[in-house]
Simulated assay, not measured.
Amino acid sequence: MGLRVFNYAQIDWTRLATASSLRRRGLRLSPGQQPAGCYERAAGRPRQVLLYWIEEAQPARRLTKAQQQALQRAREGWRQRLVCSSCGETIEPERRRRRLRICWACEEAQRVRARRQELRAWLREELARDIVVLDTETTGLPSDPGFQVVEIAVIAVTDGRLLFHKGVAPGTPGFIQGRKAAPSGSLPGVDMAASSLLSCAQ
């Protein structure tokens, strides 16, 4: 004879319970206890969920201290699989299925930090060479009428020495007649570019 199938909406949950519900109540199945019936759910597995009479169940045995400690370790291990080892936030389900111990945001942050370190190492190597910065002053944008370059300066990045400075196109309004080469530190645009490169390499 098959199991009795209960209508889920009409189940008397004060008398019937699933095996997991019995455990939450501090009960366990009695030896030889048979299911009172089942109910069917539309999705998920198993499709048939067994139900048991609560009055036939017996109190669950108390765990020993060693069993409690083992259970606590198992729960902690399971929680560690659910949270990111870096930030402590919940790991995305897809990443948990792939047994990854870090969330996507932290992995991306680590990738960015590694890339920055690579760029800084490369920049330090490049700055060890003879690199110069070229700075120009113009009368406006290239699209402006009468656009011309009026001043050119070249500065060494490694030590900040001014290597070249010259005013050009003396007929333009932006040119200062008789201007001499400026000392290092008096060209804000050039010095700012050099200091920016040096700070990025640190």
Rank of each mutant, 00 (worst) to 15 (best):
A121P: 00
A42S: 14
E137Y: 10
W78P: 00
Q72E: 07
T138Y: 06
R45W: 09
W122Y: 10
R116Y: 09
G174D: 08
W53L: 15
F175K: 03
P35H: 09
L134K: 10
R47V: 12
F175A: 09
Q68R: 15
R111Y: 00
I155P: 00
G140E: 10
Q68H: 05
L51I: 12
V49T: 12
L100W: 09
Q69D: 05
D144E: 15
E151C: 05
R23V: 11
A181S: 07
S184N: 01
C103Q: 06
A9T: 09
A42V: 14
A182T: 03
L127V: 14
E92W: 12
E126M: 13
T158D: 10
P170F: 02
A74Q: 11
E92G: 06
R96K: 05
R97W: 06
A74D: 05
R101D: 09
E94M: 08
R96F: 08
K65S: 10
V133F: 02
A193V: 04
R4Y: 14
Q148D: 12
C106Y: 10
Q72W: 02
Q10V: 01
G2Y: 09
G37I: 04
W104P: 00
S20P: 00
R99G: 00
F147K: 06
Q33G: 05
L27T: 04
Q68G: 03
R25L: 15
G2R: 15
L29C: 07
T158I: 01
E56I: 04
D144Y: 12
P188D: 10
S199L: 04
C200S: 12
L51G: 04
G2H: 11
S195W: 03
R73G: 03
I155M: 15
T138P: 00
A17I: 05
V150M: 06
R101P: 00
R99Y: 11
F175W: 05
R161G: 01
A153M: 04
L3W: 09
V149Y: 03
A153D: 02
E56D: 15
L27W: 07
D135E: 03
L198P: 01
G140L: 11
I155L: 13
F6D: 05
G174Q: 11
R120M: 11
Q148W: 10
R129E: 13
A121H: 05
Q177A: 15
S30H: 10
R62W: 00
Q117C: 04
P145T: 11
P145K: 07
S186Y: 09
G189T: 06
Q58V: 15
M1Y: 10
E108W: 08
G26A: 12
T18K: 03
R23I: 07
I102D: 02
T64V: 06
A9Q: 14
R47G: 08
V112P: 02
P173S: 04
A57I: 07
S143C: 13
